[in-house]
Amino acid sequence: MSTTAFTLPAAHSNSIARTLRIFLTEARFEFVRLLRTRAFSLAVIGFPVIFYLFFGLIMNRGEHVGSVSVAKYMLGSYAVFGMVGAALFGIGGGLASEFSTGWLELKRASPMPPLAYLVAKCCSAAAFGLVIVSILTLMAISIAHVSITLPEYAQMMALTLVGTIPFACLGMVIALLVPFNATPGVINMVYLPMSFCGGLWMPIMLLPHWLQKFALILPTYHLSQLVLGCFGYTTAGSPISHWLGLIGFTLVMLGVAAIAYRRLEQNS
């Protein structure tokens, strides 16, 4: 490894270092930008916190269904609700606005590697996801005395990072297809029904049978089942089927985004 580094021409290794620095700078300032945009940061952190407080902690105080603590079960699903919101609004909202104002075009004309832009958006959304899930976990531990082991927390964090990707792709598709002014509305129209039908607000078993079938095509369902699985709850379907569900959804979204992007490019 070190020998290859030595044999690289100085200019080349400089450019690798510069590229790496560009990726880091883009990600850092995208996160800072989102944090400073109160309309985003307050809503995206506030909603899951308030929802979890009401529905997970206050309404079901100390309740257990069988051996399942409701507060802990709800932590899993509201964590998914939170990270999905961060991904959809962070990427969908940001991309739509920068696309419509011509900022993205200026970035594309610059020597910035295009991937740095997307990676920065994805990482910032994931970082928000981590913050939201950590806050919810702290609430669960301090208010409802839910016991969460370190491995459980670590798995939840890992799922937040990976789980951002399918929703980032969905956000990208919305940004590319929907006129800028309509983006926040359309994101909500997708986000809220998808959360309900995916079993994020109430356990999937309590939904009508036909909705449970419909949930199979929803990434929210698959991701929440994976999170609940890492808490040791019995889930509908095997982990493999949920991973396949998420990967399939991601691929479909990437395909749609590619087609939409090509169509826009040809007419711009």
């Binding site: 300032f29 606005s97 920068e98 419509s100 104002t101 011509g102 900022w103 075009e105 020597p111």
Partner: peptide
């Protein structure tokens, strides 16, 4: 691109930077 610079009519640059 390293040798070119561009100023476009941009409606809005990210405002919170």
């Amino acid at each position: 691109r390293l040798r070119t610079g561009v100023m476009l009519q941009v409606g809005k640059a990210p405002e919170m930077l």
